[in-house]
């Protein structure tokens, strides 16, 4: 024969109070229940990040090298500084935002979003090259 245990003091609390206080019930309060970034996502981010890094390096080399070339040609006043700076800022900005947005997605979707971001980085880079060429009259 079994007896019903007496109610614990917690049982008298409203449901909202219990869920807010108990991390086992409220997933948001429990760090272990949240989806973690994980090693697989980190590997994908690093691999695609290497390609993005090339675009960053290309932008940096333009920022460093082009003004000198323009000066040598005697058209230093036509240096498209804004475009050159945007070429350096855009790749990490776009890629970083995409990681931020997709970090809670499953691995396949996370990878897909980062590939799209890589495509956006490429289009931005080529658009900036075309704009720089157009502004400087080449």
């Amino acid at each position: 024969m079994t007896t019903t245990p007496p109610p614990r003091p917690d049982d008298a609390l409203p449901v909202a109070a219990v869920t807010a206080a108990d991390p086992a019930i409220d997933p948001a309060a429990d760090p272990a229940a949240r989806p973690r970034f994980g090693a697989a996502r980190a590997v994908v981010a690093v691999l695609l990040g290497l390609l993005v890094a090339w675009f960053l390096w290309d932008g940096l080399s333009s920022l460093v090298g082009l003004p000198a070339q323009f000066e040598a040609l005697g058209i230093a006043d036509r240096t498209p500084w804004l475009v050159l700076v945007a070429g350096v800022l855009a790749p990490p900005l776009i890629f970083g935002l995409s990681i931020l947005l997709a970090r809670r997605q499953p691995l396949a979707q996370f990878t897909l979003v980062l590939i799209v971001a890589l495509g956006a980085v490429a289009t931005t880079r080529l658009s900036l090259i075309a704009t720089a060429a157009s502004l400087s009259g080449f």
């Binding site: 897909l112 590939i115 799209v116 890589l118 495509g119 980085v121 490429a122 289009t123």
Partner: peptide, 24 residues
């Protein structure tokens, strides 16, 4: 090679963005 790759990425970027948006 990297410039060629960038051009390839730029060409497929539109289709990728569209398909990914629809999928997600």
């Amino acid at each position: 090679i990297m410039y060629q790759f960038a051009e390839f990425l730029a060409i497929i970027a539109g289709a990728l963005w569209f398909a990914t948006t629809l999928a997600l």
